[in-house]
Design a protein around this nucleic acid. Structure first.
Lengths: 185, 185
DNA sequence: CCGCTTTATGCAACTAGTTGCACAAGCGGT
DNA sequence: ACCGCTTGTGCAACTAGTTGCATAAAGCGG
């Protein structure tokens, strides 16, 4: 149950409407917690019903009319509670690793091209993160808030670095496999 | 839609009953694609209905009676197709990073203890993977199948290594944060 | 002032995964 | 013979997330 808390965080950073939130989820927070506009609207409704957020008085509530929300004290308290509560680490679940495992049984035909594509995509994402790091986290800015957000970005950078390295290694292994295996299946 | 393919892979490695699969999903394949017994039984039913697997003739099909499945040629073909088909990399989605981002707004109280706990768990998982590596992948065993499975294990090892390093770094940062921030929220 | 596009909100149906529980058979002890 | 434990299979209800589409208002060009 992370989406409501992702929304609370985003709204605390800046009160917004559903569509504004959707756009912000396409970058920034969305880099580690993506959400579609439908999810967001549904969740905004629930959060309002629970009294954790409210519509900004300025915005009039009509369909097709912008409706901005802000977090109420109860919402802030709930977010603080959730942040501090123990949660088990997310268990790894990646189809690509599954495909590799399957390839050991049915052959690697076709898989190599997709690994190459993944490598490209991860390199691109890594470059994007590194740009953000240079732009948003120059050495002189150093509030506690900056440090925490920088830590999150570092996780993204290190993860993309891991994938580029691992995929490079995997492709090198593929190149060494005997030909019959690559055609099997 | 990875679960059916995870099951096909497992069944190709060794024909099994639902419960045997469940146990195997608790280790091995389950390290990167976990599944509960209910998911597995439901999926076995679907795969059988689609003609991708069948009940081993030896096993009698009564409730509470062991029922082993094997993969049919159509199942193997489907698995090969899926393995070769292009798929976009899984987008990152991790509640822990979200909590860190939230902590930048509502304060880090309570979070540090859970980071420490995560660090322990990741260290433990890393040690487990390394044991498996030593046991199952000695330098002399070197078939193409071994190499592919070893690659998958390496991904697990490298990911756990990333987490232990990142968490260590994060905890070091926490130690440097001014006290008021740590109590806020 | 009519139609087209953009902005914005939202419902409904679907897919995937989780949780809780029920049911059946075998087995070992008393 | 019956009790309780283990093994094994399975249904039903729920939660989370995705996809496709509907609706409404505002802005703008002719």
């Amino acid at each position: 149950m992370s989406l409501p808390h992702a929304i609370l965080t985003a709204l605390l950073e800046k009160p917004s409407s559903g569509l504004e939130l959707t756009r912000r989820f396409d970058k920034s927070i969305g880099y580690f917690w993506s959400a579609t506009h439908q999810q967001i609207y549904r969740e905004l409704g629930k959060l309002e019903a629970e009294g954790l957020i409210r519509v900004l008085p300025s915005a009039q509530p009509a369909r097709g009319q912008k409706k901005s929300y802000e977090v109420l004290p109860a919402g802030r308290a709930e977010l603080a509670r959730w942040t501090a509560a123990a949660q088990d680490p997310k268990i790894l679940r990646d189809p690509l690793l599954l495909r590799l495992r399957a390839a050991a049984v049915v052959g690697t035909a076709g898989l190599e091209a997709d690994l190459r594509r993944h490598l490209q995509l991860h390199r691109r994402q890594l470059a994007e993160y590194q740009e953000i790091e240079e732009r948003d986290f120059p050495p002189e800015r150093d509030t506690p808030e900056d440090r925490l957000r920088h830590l999150v970005l570092r996780a993204g950078i290190d993860l993309e670095t891991f994938w580029t390295q691992w995929l490079t290694h995997a492709l090198a292994e593929f190149a060494e496999l005997p030909g019959r295996e690559r055609e099997q299946g």
